[in-house]
Each structure stands twice: as C-alpha cells, then as structure tokens.
Write a protein that binds this DNA or RNA. Sequence first.
DNA 1: TCATCATGAGACAAAGATGTCTCATTTTTG
DNA 2: CAAAAATGAGACATCTTTGTCTCATGATGA
Lengths: 182, 182
Amino acid sequence: MMRKTHNRILEAGFRVFAATPTATLQDVADEAGIGRATLHRHFKGREELMAALALTAMKELDTAIEAATQDASSHTEALRRSLDAMIPLADRQMFLANEPLDHVPEVLAAYTQQLDELAEAIEAAKDEGGFDRAVPTAWIVQAYETLTYAAWAVVRDGNVTATEAAELMWRTLQSGLSGGQS
Amino acid sequence: MMRKTHNRILEAGFRVFAATPTATLQDVADEAGIGRATLHRHFKGREELMAALALTAMKELDTAIEAATQDASSHTEALRRSLDAMIPLADRQMFLANEPLDHVPEVLAAYTQQLDELAEAIEAAKDEGGFDRAVPTAWIVQAYETLTYAAWAVVRDGNVTATEAAELMWRTLQSGLSGGQS
DNA sequence: TCATCATGAGACAAAGATGTCTCATTTTTG
DNA sequence: CAAAAATGAGACATCTTTGTCTCATGATGA
C-alpha cells in the first residue's frame, strides 16, 4: 500500500486518542489529513486500528528500552536508564489502558510479556540489592509503571524537564522523598 | 423522587463504568435492576449521570479523608492516614479520569480544589520535614495520586492487603524501596 | 505515454445509543 | 381506602458511528 499513509494514520491515532479516547475514525482521518475511506483501506476497522496502535507503541517502547539498557552495568542500572526511554513514550502507552484490547491475543501476549520482563528485571535488581527483597515485586512493578505515567504528566504540565522527572522518579523508588527535620 | 432508586443507580454506575467505561445507560439500568426510562427520570442524560458520579465520588473521598485525619498529630501524619481512606475508594475516582468532565464547572471546581488541598498539605508537610523542600510539590502530588491507584490495583489483584498496600505506598514515598547490598 | 495503484469525496445502509413519550401497574402517602 | 407519586415496559424518532461501495482524480512506475 502506501506505508507513508499507513504511518500517518498511526501517528494521527496516537495524537487523537491521547486527547480523546472516544474519538471517531472520522476524527483520526481528519487529523491524518486523509479521507475516512482510505483509513478503512489500511485498517479493517476501529478494533484493528487500536490493536495496531497498541502493538506499535509496545514495540517502540521495547526498542527504546533495549537501546537504553544494552550497555548497563547492572540490572538496577538498566531499570534506571529505562526511565529516560519510557517517560517520553508514556502517552503512547497509557491511552490504551482503558481499551478493551484483551480480546486481541497478539496484544495481550505482548503486554503480558512486557510485564513479565519488568518483573524479572526487578527480581534481578533485588539480587543486586537495588530493591528490598521484603517488598513484593508486584508492588514495585505497579509503582514503576504508575510513576512513569506520573513523570510523563509533570513533564507535560511543564513543571519539570524530562531529565529531572526521571531523576525524581528514581529517587522516589530508591530513597523516597522525605527531608531532614527543619 | 425515590432517593433509594437514586442511590441504586449511582452504585450501579460505579460498578458498570469501572468495568467498562463505554458502557450503555441500558447497562447501568440493568445493573441497577430498573428500567431505562426510570434512569432518565433521575438523571437527564449520560452527562448528568457522569457528573453526579464524579461529585459523589469526590464528596465521599473528602468525607473519608476528613474523618481519617481529624485527630492527626501533624500534616505528615495526616497524609499517611489519608492513604487508608483513599486506597479503597480509588476505583470510584479513577474511572472518571478519562471522562471529559471539564465541561461541567461544578466538577472541575471540586477537582481543582481537591488538588489544591493536597498540594497545601504537602507544602505543610515539607515544613515539618516530612518531605524534602528540594522536591517539587507538583511531583509529590502526582506521585501521591498515581501511587494511590497503584496501591488499589495491587489490592484488587490480591497481591497484598489494603493495609499492607498503604504501608508500602508510604514507605515508597518516604524512604523508597531500596535494600542493603546482599 | 500508458496502465496501475492509491486516494478523495460522497452516497448508502445497518447498527447502536440516546432522549422522549405513553400507558398500565405498583408503591407510597395522606 | 383513595389520591398521588414512582416505576416498568415498550414504542418511536433521532443522531452518531461504522462499514461498504462507487466513481472520478491524482500519483506512480514500467
């Protein structure tokens, strides 16, 4: 087909659905600057578009994390470096949190694998002393994910830079936010 | 009208929309065990129902927090005790995160006030040394909110109890999750 | 240049959700 | 008990979204 148009639709989808999860295919087509019929030529329907967006988002996150962590000296350091890669991409992940994508096996499998890999990385970091073994991995996984969203949000609101947000998030996970008595 | 029916609709709305944000008014009516016409007699339409749900959720959260913190010895302690009140109610707040409720002034005002009060409490806790003044309040606010959701999620998944989740969350905020080298 | 492919625009029907209305029945209240 | 209020069930029109199709136009490549 036209890969260029294909990508334009996906990018438009990310922008439109991030702003309005209930947006119509017409909205996406308009944002992409194409006709709605063309959108249907590239994606069978709404569900297929959503699945494509989800797979695209997860794949690019995977790529970004791999690139950021390939020469990390430890699992703990890899988790730290992943933040810089994940935070800017958070908006491309979170818009589909409320989508019923569980019915698409391909998407569900990719998502499950993502969670499993994060849990494994955290377990490995525990062995290095990066995280306390007494803290449930399930909690660290959840905190890691939701704080990534939090970091993206404060960057979006202009409160801090992306680099600062990553540092704040890591500090929160590692040593908390408390200060000395004043 | 019939306040009993009114409340049944609201409770059904919480359950249904928490599970499926795009649920139909028919779905809500069914869940409430009433006719769709009756639902319309109590709430003009979908938007009004959503606004009522949002206001109800925020009001009950406000009440729960006030009850939990009225005899707290410090602002920091109040923030800690609020967790026990907030975590079980998280699902009644988060379902509307993706709703376009900004158009209802009443809801927007209540939400803004909620955020302002949290920011104020955090500023006060900073004065007590509960939080580091070098950390932006905006970050602490975001972390506090998103971790509340994280805590609710791990409880929902059965990984930890509500009490444990509150302690894990507080520890995360205060001293982080790192362990000693092993 | 010519044939092929992708596209834009629009028409069209089907399906789903919403809002309104009526009427018979049940429940509540005085 | 009698009046008033609330409800259930369903009909109905309207609106929106979706998916499909056609046809003319523009772009691409041999």
